[in-house]
Simulated assay, not measured.
Amino acid sequence: MLRLSIHTILRGTLVASGMGSFLGATSLQVAAQDRTPMRVAVEGAFPPFNYVDVNSKLQGFDIDIANALCEVGKFECQFIIEKWDDMIPNLVGGKYDAIISSMSMSLERRQKVAFTEKYYSSPSVFIVRKDSSINDVSPAALSDKNLGLTSSTVQESFANNLYPEMKKTVFRSSPELYNGLADGSVDVILEDKLAIYDWMANTKAGSCCEFQGPDLLDVTYFGEGAGIALRLDDKERLTRLNEALKSIKADGTYDMINAKYFPFSIQ
Rank of each mutant, 00 (worst) to 15 (best):
S17P: 08
P175Q: 09
A195I: 04
N67C: 06
V54H: 12
R11A: 10
D53Y: 05
R39A: 15
V170A: 05
Y51D: 10
A98F: 08
D233N: 12
N202R: 12
T203W: 07
S173N: 03
T169V: 14
G180H: 03
M19W: 07
F126C: 08
M256D: 00
N146L: 15
K167V: 07
L149H: 03
G24C: 00
Y178P: 06
A32F: 05
A45I: 12
K249Q: 15
Y178R: 01
V30Y: 11
F75K: 05
A16G: 05
F264W: 09
R237S: 11
V30E: 05
K83M: 12
K167A: 12
A31G: 03
K260R: 15
M200A: 10
D53V: 04
G184T: 06
I88V: 15
L58G: 04
N55K: 13
K235W: 00
D85M: 04
T153A: 08
G73C: 07
C209I: 08
D64P: 06
S173A: 10
L238S: 07
G60K: 06
S27M: 15
L230D: 02
A259N: 14
A159E: 09
S247E: 15
I6C: 09
S157V: 15
R11D: 15
G44C: 00
R39Y: 01
A25F: 07
A259S: 14
R240N: 14
A205T: 14
A195E: 13
L181S: 02
E176W: 08
L23P: 06
S56K: 14
L216Q: 10
M38R: 10
E43V: 15
T220C: 03
C208Y: 13
R11L: 10
A195M: 02
L181G: 01
D85N: 10
D198C: 05
A244F: 10
E82S: 15
